[in-house]
């Protein structure tokens, strides 16, 4: 299971690509998939590389991205 998880709201995304440019690990890409409004939507095409740094979410001009991270395993439990 990758360390991070990116959830992109397909209908909010306008395919601007700023998240793709912001992602240091090449997790995201603007795909040929269209949303209801005819925008090419961004997706996590390499989700396994995601660290959950959330830089994509901080860059998104449509507040379309939410990011989760694997909770650290409890030591000694």
């Amino acid at each position: 299971m990758p360390k991070g998880l990116v959830i992109i709201d397909k209908e909010r995304c306008k395919g601007c690509g700023l998240c793709v440019a912001a992602c240091p690990f090449g997790v995201l890409a603007v795909t040929s998939e269209l949303n209801r409004y005819g925008y090419n939507v961004a997706k996590a095409t390499a989700p396994e590389k995601c660290t959950g740094c959330a830089m994509c979410a901080q860059m998104c001009p449509d507040a379309a991205i939410e990011v989760y991270r694997m909770a650290p395993a409890k030591e000694g439990v």
């Binding site: 992109i8 397909k10 939410e66 990011v67 989760y68 694997m70 909770a71």
Partner: peptide, 13 residues
């Protein structure tokens, strides 16, 4: 977006 968040993941943003 109603997406099921797998167990063990906590929100960051």
């Amino acid at each position: 977006v109603n997406v099921q968040i797998p167990a063990g993941y906590v929100p960051v943003y």
